Amino acid sequence: MDRLILMILAVGLVSIGITVLLGKVASRIKSLKYLPGALCLCLSIYYYYLARFVRAGEGFEDLGKFILAVFLFAAAFFSIITALIIEYRDRSKGDR
C-alpha cells in the first residue's frame, strides 16, 4: 500500500512539474496550463470505461486499466489544482 501511495505522489509531482513548466513557457496563453489536467482527466475516464464496460471480466487486464485510470485521475487532480494556484497567484500579483 505504501508503494501505491508513493507512485501516486510521483505521478502527481510529474504532472505538477509539467503544469508549472507550461505555465512559465506559455504565460501569454492562460488556458494552456489547464491542458495536462484536462487530458489526464479525459484519459482517466476513458480507461475507467474500458475497465468497467468493455470486455469486462478479463481479470488482470481490467485491473491494470483501473489502476491506470486511478493514476491518471491523480495526475489530473494535482495538475488542475496547480493550474488554479498559478492562476490565483498571477491574479493577486497583477492587482498590486
Rank of each mutant, 00 (worst) to 15 (best):
residue 1 M to A: 11
residue 1 M to L: 10
residue 2 D to Q: 02
residue 2 D to S: 06
residue 3 R to K: 09
residue 4 L to R: 05
residue 5 I to C: 01
residue 5 I to W: 07
residue 7 M to I: 13
residue 7 M to Q: 12
residue 7 M to D: 13
residue 8 I to P: 01
residue 9 L to Y: 09
residue 11 V to S: 12
residue 11 V to R: 09
residue 12 G to L: 05
residue 13 L to V: 15
residue 13 L to G: 15
residue 14 V to K: 08
residue 14 V to R: 09
residue 15 S to G: 05
residue 16 I to F: 14
residue 16 I to Q: 10
residue 17 G to S: 13
residue 18 I to A: 15
residue 18 I to D: 06
residue 19 T to E: 07
residue 20 V to K: 12
residue 20 V to Y: 14
residue 20 V to A: 14
residue 20 V to R: 10
residue 23 G to Q: 04
residue 23 G to C: 03
residue 24 K to A: 02
residue 24 K to Y: 09
residue 25 V to T: 11
residue 25 V to W: 06
residue 25 V to Y: 06
residue 25 V to E: 04
residue 26 A to Q: 03
residue 26 A to T: 11
residue 26 A to C: 03
residue 28 R to L: 05
residue 28 R to N: 14
residue 28 R to C: 02
residue 30 K to Q: 03
residue 31 S to A: 02
residue 31 S to Y: 02
residue 34 Y to A: 03
residue 35 L to C: 00
residue 35 L to S: 04
residue 38 A to K: 05
residue 38 A to R: 03
residue 38 A to T: 08
residue 40 C to M: 12
residue 41 L to Y: 13
residue 41 L to P: 04
residue 41 L to I: 12
residue 42 C to N: 05
residue 43 L to H: 08
residue 43 L to Q: 06
residue 44 S to N: 01
residue 45 I to M: 13
residue 46 Y to T: 07
residue 48 Y to L: 12
residue 48 Y to F: 13
residue 49 Y to Q: 04
residue 49 Y to H: 09
residue 50 L to V: 06
residue 50 L to C: 08
residue 50 L to P: 03
residue 51 A to Y: 06
residue 52 R to M: 08
residue 53 F to E: 11
residue 54 V to K: 12
residue 54 V to C: 01
residue 55 R to Y: 10
residue 56 A to E: 14
residue 56 A to Q: 12
residue 57 G to T: 07
residue 57 G to K: 06
residue 57 G to S: 07
residue 57 G to H: 06
residue 57 G to W: 08
residue 58 E to L: 14
residue 58 E to G: 10
residue 59 G to T: 10
residue 59 G to Q: 09
residue 60 F to E: 13
residue 63 L to F: 15
residue 64 G to A: 14
residue 64 G to S: 13
residue 64 G to C: 04
residue 64 G to D: 11
residue 64 G to T: 12
residue 65 K to G: 00
residue 65 K to P: 00
residue 66 F to R: 09
residue 67 I to H: 08
residue 67 I to K: 10
residue 68 L to N: 09
residue 70 V to L: 14
residue 71 F to Y: 09
residue 71 F to I: 01
residue 73 F to I: 07
residue 73 F to G: 09
residue 73 F to C: 10
residue 74 A to K: 01
residue 75 A to Y: 08
residue 75 A to H: 05
residue 76 A to S: 15
residue 76 A to Y: 10
residue 76 A to T: 08
residue 76 A to N: 08
residue 77 F to E: 05
residue 77 F to A: 13
residue 78 F to H: 11
residue 79 S to L: 05
residue 79 S to N: 04
residue 80 I to Y: 00
residue 81 I to G: 02
residue 82 T to S: 12
residue 82 T to Y: 02
residue 84 L to H: 14
residue 84 L to K: 13
residue 84 L to T: 06
residue 86 I to M: 15
residue 88 Y to M: 11
residue 88 Y to R: 14
residue 89 R to E: 10
residue 89 R to T: 12
residue 89 R to C: 03
residue 91 R to V: 13
residue 91 R to C: 02
residue 92 S to D: 11
residue 92 S to I: 14
residue 92 S to C: 05
residue 93 K to C: 01
residue 93 K to H: 08
residue 94 G to C: 00
residue 95 D to N: 11
